[in-house]
């Protein structure tokens, strides 16, 4: 699947086969804040044929909060323990969905990551997640 890279973004080099299968994912830096994005295309649509499926939205939340958990924690391998999302408004076909994630707390073995997902200035989903740093105790 080729999709044009939105202005100001670069295409992430995806490693996980599933992320390649539902991607691409894009990234840009916004004054030190990592912004990860995907554009809703035909493959992502839910039962109404207009809006993104919740599975794709949660996959995006996991992948984009995972960027923070991995890249912003010295590249220590980690795994999702738990992920919670509220769906405020479902993004439509063609819309660019962005995630801004940040740590709410970091311990040696557990990371708490919060994600704000939006289309333009409008919040569409809020997410929280819990990550295990592999090998740390």
């Amino acid at each position: 699947m080729t999709a044009s890279v939105p202005e100001g973004f670069f295409a992430q080099e995806l490693i996980d086969p599933f992320e390649k299968f539902v991607g691409p994912l894009f990234e840009r830096d916004e004054d030190g804040q990592r912004v990860v994005a995907f554009r809703v295309d035909e493959r992502h649509l839910g039962h109404d044929g207009v809006h993104s499926h919740e599975g794709q939205l949660m996959t995006f939340a996991d992948a984009s909060m995972g960027c923070t958990a991995y890249w912003d924690n010295d590249h220590a391998p980690c795994a999702t323990l738990s992920l919670q999302v509220s769906f405020l408004r479902f993004p439509k076909l063609g819309e660019l969905v962005e995630c801004r994630a940040r740590f709410t707390r970091k311990t040696r073995s557990i990371l708490f990551v919060e994600g704000a997902i939006s289309v333009g200035d409008e919040p569409v989903m809020s997410a929280t997640s819990l990550w295990k740093v592999l090998g740390a105790r």
Partner: peptide
């Protein structure tokens, strides 16, 4: 799959 050869968390949640 994810990079470790197990089902990706996104697929699980799907």
């Amino acid at each position: 799959l994810n990079g470790d050869g197990f089902i990706h968390g996104g697929m699980m949640m799907t």
